[in-house]
């Protein structure tokens, strides 16, 4: 940076319905790097922002689900491309947020890109491993297929600011769900920048909505929201999990419980995708 020139800092905002609004509450909160330096004033999303995000997700979900699997795979691959291109920027943000050396952060960003490529490839294969043609005793062609559950609330991992986020978000959207994500409360900067990647990757507006703010304020609303169909509680602490799961039962949400010490660098199985799909079985008549 030239001597004497003042840097132009970015305002970190929310990502809702494909746009980057401030919190309707007008609030923000300071976000610090691992070394204590001020990184940004992130938007402090309100309960109203969360409800708006659910509305956006619901509106976008049917069309996203109806997009061909091939097309969804290409969109996820496009996210990977855009992330790769900005790898240096993400490495710096992850390094500062998580207090890592540059090389280590670079490795996590590369793993995040690869994770997106991994899930991109699943889009048109999951139905082939999770579906079935069932040999019923009668004149019917009986088949079962996985379909997206709908709108999924995701509480992103608190520690792994980018790889953790990508690892929980990609399996939710690749099958045709829409997501409302609450980013890591302490480390939201890579997540907000990742929303910029999403916005430029042909991901339709509303398919992913990303909020920054206080988990204590947002998670109970997300868990109890009647128009949210599933909940990934990955980023929830053990003492908060039970209350949120109880709230989720009000509309029989599918809940992916928090994991104890998840290893985000391990190659994932299809399990996370399968948690947020529904199996539909169709009996089609056979007759001349």
């Amino acid at each position: 940076m030239p001597e004497g020139r003042l840097a132009v800092n970015k305002t970190y905002k929310l990502y809702v319905a494909g746009a980057f609004p401030r919190s309707e509450s007008g609030r923000s909160y300071p976000v610090h790097a691992a070394d204590g330096a001020l990184l940004a004033n992130a938007a402090l999303a309100s309960r109203k922002d969360l409800r708006d995000a659910v509305v956006a997700a619901r509106a976008a979900q049917p069309k996203w689900a109806r997009t061909t699997a091939y097309n969804r795979g290409q969109v996820l691959y496009r996210i990977a491309e855009m992330l790769e291109e900005r790898a240096a920027q993400f490495a710096e943000q992850v390094a500062r947020s998580e207090g890592l050396a540059g090389a280590e952060a670079g490795r996590l960003v590369a793993a995040s890109v690869d994770r997106l490529v991994y899930y991109a490839g699943w889009s048109d294969k999951l139905a082939q491993i999770a579906g079935a043609a069932n040999p019923v005793a009668g004149p019917y062609f009986n088949f079962s297929l996985p379909e997206p559950t709908g709108v999924i609330g995701v509480v992103a991992p608190p520690g792994s600011s980018l790889l953790g986020l990508v690892s929980v978000l990609a399996p939710v959207i690749v099958t045709g769900n829409a997501a409302v994500v609450v980013a890591s409360e302490e480390r939201p900067v890579p997540a907000v920048t990742f929303a910029e990647v999403l916005a430029t990757s042909d991901v339709p507006g509303g398919v992913v909505n990303l909020l920054t703010g206080r988990l204590a304020e947002l998670a109970p609303v997300l868990a109890a929201h009647r128009d949210v169909d599933g909940l990934d509680l990955c980023g929830i602490s053990e003492q908060d999990a039970a209350a949120l799961e109880r709230a989720a039962a009000d509309n029989v949400k599918r809940v992916l419980r928090r994991e104890v010490a998840p290893d985000w660098e391990r190659r994932p199985s299809p399990r996370r995708m399968l948690h947020f799909v529904e199996t539909k079985t169709v009996w089609h008549p056979i007759g001349a």
Binding site: A132, N134, P135, V136, A137, G138, Y140, N142, S144, T279, T281, V282, W283, H284, P285
Partner: peptide, 12 residues
Amino acid sequence: ANTFNRFDPTSP
């Protein structure tokens, strides 16, 4: 389709 309340052990 063109039937109802049909069940089979192979059918989820």
